[in-house]
């Protein structure tokens, strides 16, 4: 039934797909943390205006499907002559960049919620201890609250990592050849079904396996070794 030689012959296609998926997801995750952490702080500290803006942001991006966000960014914006004539067209004309922007903005919204909860849950005693030692509120934030929140949110954040990896398949709908894109290309070229999809599934599982090991290590190192 399965034609394994077909997969072997197209190994380069899948290798390229793995590279695209990994770079896309890791850059989006990094960008998500850089955007999401300040927003989470703004929300948890109830900073006027900024806190509210962060709330609206996360509502909008968590309230709409990633695929819709990607289509609006990729096909929607391209409809406007003004956009095509502007400097923004340089990045927006590239499908990979559009996917990266959409994933980053989307991940930032989820990260904001994860960190907001974790920031609020930091033990009051630790904060008071910091203040008693003479730290300023800013010092308490960066030396105690943020590190503690990053630590305790590891399990929730690891879920977001895996979620984004799987959600990244939508990139294949705007011509990006990621892992699923490679599978679809193979299927379309040879009129097969299982070969492309199963290979893609196995590759995603392999990446998740490696990720899980990394997360376990991080958790052992930062979450359970309090002594």
């Amino acid at each position: 039934m399965m034609d394994l030689s077909l997969i072997a012959e197209n190994a380069h296609l899948f290798a390229q797909g793995v590279w695209v998926t990994i770079t896309l997801v890791s850059m989006a995750l990094a960008g998500g943390v850089l955007l999401g952490l300040p927003m989470a702080i703004a929300q948890s500290q109830r900073i006027p205006v900024l806190g509210r803006l962060a709330q609206v942001y996360s509502y909008v991006f968590r309230g709409t499907p990633l695929l819709v966000q990607l289509y609006i960014l990729y096909y929607g914006l391209a409809q406007f002559e003004a956009v095509r004539a502007s400097i923004f067209w340089v990045p927006l004309s590239n499908a990979y960049v559009c996917a990266l922007i959409a994933f980053t903005l989307n991940s930032a919204a989820y990260v904001t919620e994860i960190y907001r909860g974790a920031l609020l849950n930091v033990d009051r005693g630790e904060i008071e201890a910091g203040l008693a030692c003479g730290m300023t509120r800013r010092q308490v934030m960066w030396r105690i609250i943020v590190p503690q929140a990053l630590r305790t949110s590891l399990p929730a954040y690891s879920n977001e990592v895996i979620f984004l990896l799987h959600a990244s398949v939508v990139a294949s709908t705007i011509t990006v050849i990621d892992i699923l894109g490679a599978g679809r290309t193979l299927n379309a070229q040879y009129y097969v079904v299982y070969e492309g999809f199963l290979t893609a599934a196995v590759l995603y599982m392999a990446i998740v396996a490696v990720l899980t090991l990394c997360i376990r290590w991080l958790e052992r190192r930062y979450l359970f070794s309090k002594a």
Binding site: Y75, A78, S93, A95, T185, A188
Partner: peptide
Amino acid sequence: ENYLRAERPDITIKAYPTQDEVWLDLAAGR
């Protein structure tokens, strides 16, 4: 798509789920 893949390795091929999406991106200049 199959013709280009077989005969024109010098061309970058972009494959879309539907023909309508090809027209959208051609009009957009991508």
